[in-house]
């Protein structure tokens, strides 16, 4: 930092990147595909929106290669709402990430919902001022993404299914991993780092603090207020709802109900009240009916 700046201004620091995720905690981030949906999400109390060309359920149906959204859609969503706007790039596609940063999005999701662009490497997220959120199924995967510069983690679940079982599995797996590391003796931590495939310093941090170094949201299959509260009770900091809102019968009411259930996740009376009269939820998919090639969670490593 130069000496002629007495206030030592810095942008893109880890603290401002992780800080935005801290501000989103206890909230719901909703997938939207246009400005109208973005307004519905904001009006319902979403803390941020994810601008996409298609929600994951439609990506499943469409097949083919799923890519970063058209910048026109991202721009329209950004000008429609005042809450933060996130957008997805393909795993390893650092140029899509550069484009999203150039558009001014508030968070980039390096996402397994899109078709991976690199079989070996995720994006070097330290190279960006815009913060990144990445998916993970277990502690090692979460710490690898954090080592690459992710400022926020979301457990993957299985996107576009409306089936919460994988979200639960991944949340429990991360939590169990943290408990395991926290209970180890000092001399075991190098071995744990090797087993997890994660840097020793981050494993040490998790051991000392008993939590992930960044905010962890839950994603992939959340379709009802009770689903959202379930994930919150399992220990996540907030939830992503992808197809669950706009693939349901009454998106506005459902969005609002999921927001309330996320805030009052420990209050069954509130969850009961907000779950009434929401119309049809999205049609769910049984995980065992998805072919191996259709499992989005296996993308990334």
């Amino acid at each position: 930092m130069t000496t002629d700046d007495p206030t030592r201004v810095e942008t893109g620091t880890l603290r401002v990147k992780t800080g935005l995720a801290e501000m989103l905690k206890g909230g719901v981030i909703m997938d939207v595909v246009n400005a109208e949906q973005a307004k519905v999400a904001e009006d319902a109390g979403a803390v941020a929106v994810m601008a996409l060309e298609r929600v994951p359920a439609d990506i499943r149906v469409a097949g083919g290669v799923a890519r970063m959204a058209d910048p026109t859609i991202v721009r329209q969503v950004m000008s429609a709402v005042t809450v933060p706007v996130m957008a997805k790039c393909r795993i390893g596609h650092f140029v899509e990430a550069q484009v999203l940063e150039s558009l001014g999005v508030d968070y980039v999701d390096e996402s397994e919902v899109l078709t991976p662009a690199d079989d070996d490497y995720h994006v070097d997220k330290w190279a960006f001022d815009v913060p990144f959120v990445c998916g993970a199924r277990d502690l090692g995967e979460a710490l690898r993404r954090i080592a690459e510069g992710a400022a926020m983690i979301r457990t993957k679940g299985e996107p576009g299914t409306g089936n919460v079982v994988e979200a639960v599995r991944h949340m429990r797996t991360v939590t169990d991993g943290i408990s395991w590391v926290a209970g180890l003796r000092d001399e075991q931590l190098h071995g744990a780092a090797k087993d997890l495939g994660a840097p020793y310093e981050l494993v040490r941090w998790v051991h000392d603090e008993g939590r992930l170094p960044v905010v962890n949201f839950s994603a992939g299959g959340i379709a009802t207020p009770a689903d959202a509260a379930l994930m919150m009770q399992l220990g996540c900091d907030g939830v992503f709802v992808g197809s669950g809102v706009f693939k349901s019968g009454d998106p506005s009411s459902r969005a609002k109900a999921i927001v309330e259930a996320t805030t009052h996740f420990e209050d069954p009376d509130t969850i009961a009240r907000v779950s009434q009269d929401l119309g049809e939820p999205m049609v769910g998919i049984e995980i065992s009916e998805i072919p191996e090639s259709g499992m989005m969670q296996r993308r990334g490593w």
């Binding site: 030592r8 620091t13 933060p84």
Partner: peptide
């Protein structure tokens, strides 16, 4: 500004005696 403009800076806050690192997020 938006998130890419989020920043940290030293602030002179009345009554604190010495700079305070301000974290500004959107």
């Amino acid at each position: 500004g938006r998130q890419v403009d989020s920043f940290e800076a030293d602030l002179d806050v009345e009554g604190l005696g010495g700079p305070f690192r301000g974290v500004f997020i959107r």
